[in-house]
Structure formats: structure tokens, C-alpha cells
């Protein structure tokens, strides 16, 4: 049970009678080890989110295998153990919580895969909130009544409720304010260390990738165009798309450096 292995994953969305079928993901293979972070890099339409949904089995793959230990869970009913073992943290925390439920209700709801009494659940929720740096005052609030950063911490706490071994992080910081992105990166790193989690980080922001990843895979239009050890890929990207992504955040190696502000401000009338 220590490796989440994906082999030859393919997902085709049928376009119906009128339109062409769309191959969202083609021949995707990866291994996520515990204590390890694999970054899957790509922008909208590159297939990264589809990979996340497939691994969580919120979608069923057209072909390929998803293995946790010996068992292939890629088709049919998803075993409870698999559901417990693999959880997700979403990009936009505000969308990740039912607006009609209090945060407390949503957190209680996250324990449905574990047979606990209400009291045990409450105790564990308190513990989880503490581990993400919050306290019980948020329980009575609705998602819109806490800040984005706090809600993302709660999203992480919720994902931990099943005691997972693997977390899929779908752009976990890109909907958050710049000044608190680092908080979430740090919290994720601490959580990973303490629980020995295997992380699949989906991101297009190379700064986040640099801060978190051990290995990197770059996806473009449904296929992997580059993969390797994180330091290597960031320092010496072999694919031009990877270079573009690095340039976009000023991490390129000078070829397309960030334009500086005007050398002298234009005179105003």
C-alpha cells in the first residue's frame, strides 16, 4: 500500500453525434511515493485536472490502470480503502465547501468513511483544526464568513479526516492571496512530513513547484512532454513550453527576462 501507481491512463470525452471526440489525457503514467511530492505542471486544457479527477476516480478512465498496492481500482466500484487513502485539496476553497452548510457540518461530513461516534468526530475535528493552525471558532461559520486562507486550511483539514496516505493538490495556492501562499505551502510541507504523505501537486506556477516538488512532469495538450527531478527540470528545461512557464514568473534563465519598468517615466503634461 505504499505506492500509488498509474499506468497508461487515457481519457477520451465523447463529443456526441455532432462533434469530434476529445482526447483529454493520453498514455499517462506516474508513481506517487509516500513522503514524496510529484508535481504535474500544465495550464488549462493540458489535462492535469483530468488526471486528478481520474486518480480520485471521480471520472473513469477510458483505458489504463490505477493501482494502490496490488489492486487495480481503475474500473467499477471504488473500494472504501482507496477512497480513504486518496483525498483532494481544491484550488478555490470557496467553491470546495457547500455554501449552505456551516464549516462544522462540512467537517463532520468528511468522516462518513470512518465509523466514529459524534463525540470522537468532534475530538478529531478539534485536533485537525489545531494541526492546520485554526481553532473551533470557525466551526459555526459559513464558508463566506472566513478568509480564503483560513478556508484553504480547513480544506486541508477536511482532506485529512479520512487519514489518507496520498493527497492530490489541485492548484492549492493559486486562488489565494500572494501574502499567504507561503503559509499554505509551509503547512502542506509540515503535514507531509508528519504524516508521511505522498503528494501529487497540480500547478502551473513554477514558484510553487520549486518550493514543493521532488519530481516534475510537464503536460501539454494531454501528454507528458517533459519529466525529471525537480532541480534538473527547473534549471535546464528541455521543452520550450516548460521554458515559457518559467519565463512567465521570471524564473527563466535570462532568455526572456521580465521586462523592467520604464527606464524613465514618461513626462506627464
Amino acid at each position: 500500500m505504499s505506492v500509488l501507481a498509474v499506468d497508461g491512463l487515457r481519457k477520451v470525452f465523447s463529443g456526441g453525434r455532432a462533434r469530434k471526440d476529445v482526447v483529454a489525457v493520453d498514455d499517462f503514467s506516474c508513481e506517487v511515493h509516500r513522503h514524496h511530492t510529484l508535481a504535474l505542471v500544465g495550464e488549462s486544457g493540458s489535462g492535469t485536472t483530468t488526471v486528478a479527477l481520474l486518480i480520485l476516480r471521480l471520472l473513469s478512465p477510458t483505458a489504463g490502470a490505477i493501482r494502490l498496492g496490488q489492486e487495480d481500482v481503475s474500473q467499477g466500484r471504488v473500494p472504501v480503502e482507496y477512497r480513504r487513502a486518496v483525498q483532494i485539496v481544491f484550488q478555490n476553497p470557496l467553491g470546495a465547501f457547500n455554501p449552505r452548510l456551516t464549516i462544522g457540518t462540512s467537517l463532520h461530513d468528511a468522516f462518513r468513511l470512518r465509523d466514529l461516534t459524534r463525540k470522537e468526530r468532534a475530538a478529531e475535528i478539534a485536533e485537525l483544526l489545531d494541526s492546520v493552525g485554526l481553532d473551533g471558532t470557525v466551526l459555526g461559520r459559513y464558508p463566506t464568513q472566513v478568509s480564503g486562507g483560513q478556508l484553504q486550511r480547513i480544506g486541508i483539514a477536511r482532506a485529512l479526516a479520512t487519514r489518507p496516505s496520498f493527497l492530490v493538490l489541485d492548484e492549492p495556492t493559486s486562488a489565494l492571496d500572494m501574502s499567504i501562499r507561503g503559509q499554505i505551502v509551509e503547512l502542506l510541507a509540515t503535514t507531509q512530513r508528519e504524516r508521511g504523505l505522498g503528494l501529487l501537486l497540480i500547478s502551473h506556477d513554477m514558484r510553487v513547484v520549486r518550493a514543493m516538488a521532488d519530481t516534475v512532469m510537464v503536460m501539454y495538450r494531454g501528454t507528458v512532454v517533459e519529466e525529471g527531478e525537480a532541480g534538473q527540470v527547473l534549471a535546464k528545461p528541455s521543452h520550450s513550453y516548460t521554458q515559457d512557464l518559467l519565463d512567465a514568473v521570471g524564473m527563466g534563465n535570462g532568455a526572456h527576462a521580465t521586462p523592467q519598468p520604464d527606464p524613465k517615466p514618461e513626462t506627464s503634461l
Binding site: S147, G149, I180, R181, G182, V185, E186, R207, A211
Partner: peptide, 18 residues
Amino acid sequence: GSVELGASGKPAYIPGYA
């Protein structure tokens, strides 16, 4: 300072919330 997330080592951020 927090934009770059810290080029190496500890990520940079502002503690607390607005």
C-alpha cells in the same frame, strides 16, 4: 517578499490574515 515564495528553503509569507 512573499511573491517569490522564497527561492530556496523556508517559504516566505506574511503570517496571519487580513
